[in-house]
Write a protein that binds this DNA or RNA. Structure first.
Lengths: 243, 243
DNA sequence: CGATATTTTGACATGGATCAAGTCTAGTGG
DNA sequence: CCACTAGACTTGATCCATGTCAAAATATCG
């Protein structure tokens, strides 16, 4: 099958852990579900895992048994289609929850894999839900995190449904820029995204070829620069209008 | 693609119909947030509202101040674009939560309006969250409801990103069919959806013209029938394959 | 029964997909 | 240090699914 080129690009992003160029970093605070809670509760076993870039965290249909917070690195969740195409559902950044996208009945609705090397802190669902049912605050934090994810997903729906290729690419890059900013602070106009054009294609529902052309045009128009993971929003105002 | 993975399992909900052609119906139970709780808590004022078809429940950017359960009728949430197009984000069916799609900071992320006449049971956010923080079960139910919405949204993302017009239409109609079934029970192959081709177009990101052509073709191929809101899935197997 | 929305049909335009090379880059091994 | 290689990125030529515009047919409703 033609899967090869579409599925493996990640494997080549495998820059090693904890280097300055790559976005692997420690994370002290997690505003989604308090990691202190999370780590305390996960105390009945070794629950922090380090995984290499390209690792599969879970596959579509796997048992729905564990939730994680991503402490470091980037991951993605995606759905695979028979024709070999995949849709990237969301990019998972440090501090985000992952593993709640399933149900007891049907297992995980989507697969997840590490884009860079990652560090995960995970716990059994049974325990997670038990904790939720004991602690309203914890459950509320969880609900808020999921609401945030849902809002991102709805934005994505809007972009995919109504926008041109330009708009979808702009939308995605601006969103990622904002999320990275929110995590890292600072205001260097350049941010580092460990993704390539194939990721953008799979997230926006375009072909890599057309992503390339679209980026080229945006570059020529002075909207942004994106090369080897370095993203600079040159004209945020005009970009926002496009998005 | 396996149908099961595309369509989130919606736990079966209540029953009881009020008028035969129109989907307005009484609702005894709500598995998302227990309406008994909901109504009890909303006791400090008249909180059940009846609204006519076409009413605006809230607009994009409105204050984020109230959540509702939809007791009867259909509603939709949508995002409007400058060019006049709109993206329907989700269809809200009896038993669903509505009004949690926003944040204190930015207000409601999307607008909502009634498709049919609706009955809403609503309460202030402040009270809703207070109740959540006192009752883990309530908070958990809320979290589960939100998770279900997020999964529907992700399905929608996958459909919009990777599927042809046929696939998107099939996807939407099959999903709605299942949701209605889950609510109404029974197994009449025909279900009543109070939507028209324009709704389908706005939800799938197509033009009404092309929706029409697509439906015509599917009808000719013996896949389904959809006319004046009456939907019959003639060949669910093949439809699932298309979707 | 006229007025207004919805659905259907046709002719034509176009954004993006597809196919096919070619170039550039970062690893790898000698 | 260089040659080799496999991905990733570019570019060009061509095709087709879907959008756009226009108008007729049909349903809905006061």
């Amino acid at each position: 099958m033609v899967l090869g080129t579409r599925l493996s690009p990640i494997a080549s992003v495998p820059r090693v852990v904890l280097c300055e160029r790559c976005p692997i970093r420690r994370h002290g605070v997690c505003d989604q579900v308090d990691p202190h809670d999370f780590e305390r509760m996960a105390s009945d076993g070794p629950r922090v895992r380090n995984l290499a870039a390209g690792s599969v965290l879970f596959g579509e249909g796997d048992a729905f048994d564990r939730v994680f917070t991503l402490q470091a690195g980037w991951a993605l969740t995606s759905k695979l289609f028979e024709d070999g195409h995949r849709q990237i559902i969301r990019f998972v950044l440090p501090g985000d929850l992952i593993g709640f996208e399933g149900s007891e009945a049907t297992g995980m609705a989507y697969g997840a894999e590490a884009i860079t090397a990652v560090r995960l802190c995970g716990m059994e669902h049974s325990m997670f839900f038990k904790e939720c049912s004991c602690s309203p605050r914890f459950a509320m934090n969880y609900a808020e995190a999921v609401t945030r994810e849902a809002m991102l997903a709805w934005n994505h729906v809007g972009a995919l449904g109504q926008q041109s290729a330009r708009g979808r690419v702009a939308n995605l890059l601006v969103e990622l820029h904002q999320r990275v900013r929110a995590i890292e602070g600072g205001d260097d106009p350049a941010v580092w995204l460990p993704i390539n054009q194939t990721h953008i294609a799979d997230a926006t529902g375009m072909t890599p070829v057309h992503v390339c052309r679209t980026l080229k045009r945006m570059r020529q128009e002075g909207l942004l620069e994106f090369s080897k993971g370095r993203l600079v929003l040159i004209d945020p105002g005009r970009l926002a209008a496009v998005a």
